[in-house]
Design a binder for these strands. Structure first.
Length: 682
DNA sequence: CAGTGATGGC
């Protein structure tokens, strides 16, 4: 085909209307796509001027379509420097600065960057908090002689301000002759956000002029430095408050934990935008006010705002916090109906949500539908499977993930080690621990040591577990001592149990579990004087055993039971179900294990009765009555499952052919066909 | 045909 000059081509081939619309300054995405398709069909795309125009149209801030911009860019054989600059900017604007910076290094192989390139990549570094890369680029700026460009200077001050290196920001600032408002604002931002409140106020007063940016930056900085009240005063003084300043103030209150002040401001706003809603929903979630987060979300939909990915991430996390599977499913269906992508963080939190709500099957289903699985998705499902005790599956996915070249992070390894521990794979666990350090350069955190200790305890290597705790480079916390204590209890090692319990009581005297396990251990060993000593200690500290509480969700409603509860409308049926359960258990040969209730109750009969009325028993009875046959019974409880309930639930799962899924305070137990996924170690 | 500053989410 003969190449035509682009201008000729446009005249000859453009449909009249389309041609005309392309002369307008603003174009719709559809018009650009039509032009795009047309240019490909006719071959004029191969002209650099046409493809360049297309790229700049897609990269225009009003259109900002990275996917199309990239596909145009990829089809250009030898992009000019200008085109590289455009595509880099596009990545940075789309919160994908990391790839923007990779493109920048790729660019270096073909061109020397110019004064247009630098502001884009420096902005990318600022967004990523990539101070090291930023400094290298600063060096290159000076080497190539762009140190006097106004835009480059501004972006450098901004970089240092955002990355908390206020000294360097000030230094660059001082060397600039003509300081404009943008520059002053960047410096002010730096002082405000690093908590230099006094200096920030001084800069604010010294500035030759101020605009709304200056005010907001100061309000934000003050609020984030723990001075919300001062921030509020400045907010009140601000001449023309705009929506951004309102949102900033709301966020300030939310971050400071002052939910009520945030709510008040929200109600006073005359117009709200997406960020307002997200700040409220995210703020509620941050402050563990999950119900309010969900209510806000529903109100947002009612007022016909379209949630963004950020909104959904907060709402789904709130659902995780509530562990409300029904709510989770309804939000998931909203996501599917509205065609919202799961490839990003939304997919990750959805997997986490299902897993935390007890439905690992749904978590797996979501995981499978994600096309471009990223580290977060792999990590979420591996961690999910591991807390559900599905170790083999978790490890299989871990190997698969490594095989396709996804690099695990510290959290992935928490999942992996947890899985090894569940499956009793000590040698593998030790191997992965080493792999994490040597192959991936990840420094183990206390969670990783926790898994290691758990693994050793489970296998009965209590001395080695104790040694690991003593040798680890950080101070053991509550979880670590609890793990050792559980191990000691299960393997009947009173000596190590005592050691663990006393350390636990030292680091977390308010943890009731420590006293309870210790006292029960003494009781089993028949050391009654010590039992009463522990009881004495608890009394002195004003500690009472937290009442067991179980929750079951049915048709979107939560039913809550405490020990011996008789307040439920179905109490009569529930208690007759309990008698039926008792008979069937007896027939199956179950002997109640009262070793866990010795603390308060003296008579054997009373102990058995107490066991029978443990909150999860009541919830299971409710579930057997109400939950549709074939559906698993899902229960959440606040405490660790007691020994007797654990063996009873195993039996019940077989007797009634029902899957029973129980979430206790740290993991899930899947009871099925007489067995539990925790393999009797918890 | 391109580049600098404020709020949420990652």
């Amino acid at each position: 085909m003969q190449a035509l000059a682009p201008s000729d081509t446009l005249h000859q081939h453009f449909p009249q209307g389309l041609h005309f619309s392309l002369l307008k300054s603003s174009k719709t995405h559809q018009e650009i796509q039509q032009f795009h398709a047309f240019s490909l069909k006719t071959g004029i795309f191969t002209h650099l001027s046409v493809s360049s125009r297309l790229l700049s149209l897609y990269a225009d801030p009003k259109i900002n379509n990275l996917r199309y911009a990239r596909s145009v860019f990829d089809r250009i054989e030898h992009p000019t420097l200008v085109l590289w600059n455009i595509i880099i900017k596009c990545y940075v604007e789309n919160q994908r600065s990391h790839e923007g910076i990779s493109l920048f290094t790729e660019l270096l192989a073909h061109f020397l960057p110019d004064e247009f390139t630098f502001p884009c990549v420096i902005k990318g570094c600022a967004k990523l908090n990539a101070l090291k890369e930023g400094k290298q680029i600063h060096g290159l700026v000076l080497k190539l002689g762009f140190g006097l460009d106004k835009f480059v200077q501004s972006s450098l001050v901004n970089l240092y301000s955002k990355c908390g290196e206020i000294g360097s920001a000030q230094k660059v600032f001082d060397e600039i002759d003509e300081k404009d408002l943008i520059l002053w604002n960047s410096l002010l931002d730096g002082y405000a956000r690093c908590g230099e409140v006094k200096v920030a106020m001084k800069v604010f007063e010294e500035m030759p002029e101020k605009d709304s940016y200056s005010w907001t930056v100061l309000i934000d900085g003050l609020a984030k430095s723990g001075e919300v009240e001062t921030a509020r005063e400045i907010f009140e003084m601000m001449p023309k408050r705009n929506i951004i300043s309102w949102n900033t103030m709301i966020n300030g209150y939310m971050k400071a934990g002052d939910v009520n002040s945030a709510r008040k401001l929200f109600s006073q706003m005359s117009t709200r935008d997406l960020i307002t809603w997200n700040s409220m929903i995210g703020g509620f979630e941050l402050n563990l006010r999950f119900v309010e987060a969900l209510e806000m979300f529903e109100r947002m939909l009612k007022e016909e705002f379209r949630p963004s990915q950020a909104t959904l991430v907060s709402v789904i996390s709130a659902v995780s916090g509530l562990a409300s599977l029904a709510k989770g499913r309804s939000i998931h269906s909203y996501i599917v109906k509205n065609g919202i992508e799961l490839d990003g963080v939304v997919g990750t939190v959805l997997i986490e949500m299902y897993s935390k709500c007890g439905s690992i099957d749904s978590a797996l289903a979501v995981f499978r539908t994600i096309n471009h699985k990223k580290l977060g998705h792999w990590t979420a499902i591996i961690v999910g499977l591991s807390i559900h005790g599905m170790a083999e599956h978790a490890l299989k996915l871990f190997l698969e993930m490594r095989k396709i070249g996804v690099k695990p992070n510290a959290i992935t390894f928490v999942g992996v080690l947890n899985a090894c521990s569940h499956a009793g794979l000590i040698d593998d666990g030790r191997g992965y621990f080493k792999m994490m350090i040597n192959e991936y350069g990840i420094k183990p955190t206390i969670e990783h040591y926790g898994c290691l200790v758990d693994m050793l305890c489970r296998a009965g290597y209590l001395e080695e577990a104790k040694g690991t705790i003593e040798e680890m480079p950080m101070r053991p916390n509550k979880v670590i001592w609890m793990t050792l204590l559980s191990g000691a209890r299960i393997h009947g090692n009173t000596k190590i149990g005592e050691y663990a319990a006393y350390n636990l009581i030292e680091v977390a005297p308010e943890t009731i579990g420590g006293y309870v396990v210790l006292s029960n251990m003494y009781a089993v060993a028949g050391e009654w004087d010590k039992v009463s000593k522990v009881r004495e200690m608890m009394k002195k500290r004003g500690l009472r055993k937290e009442p067991g509480c179980s929750l079951i969700e049915h048709r979107g409603m939560h039913h809550e039971f405490i020990v011996g509860d008789k307040s439920h409308p179905q109490t009569k049926e529930i208690y007759s179900k309990l008698s039926e359960m008792r008979e069937k258990l007896k027939l199956a040969g179950h002997i109640p294990d009262t070793s866990q209730v010795l603390l308060y109750i003296e008579e054997e009969e009373e102990k058995e009765a107490e066991l029978e009325h443990h909150s999860e028993r009541l919830a299971i009875a409710f579930g057997l009555i109400n939950v549709e046959a074939g559906c698993p019974i899902r229960i959440m409880k606040n405490l660790r499952v007691c020994n007797d309930c654990h063996s009873v639930t195993k039996l019940l799962s077989k007797i009634y052919s029902r899957e029973i899924i129980v979430r206790d305070n740290s993991r899930f137990h899947h009871f099925k066909n007489g067995l539990c996924s925790c393999k009797d170690f918890w």
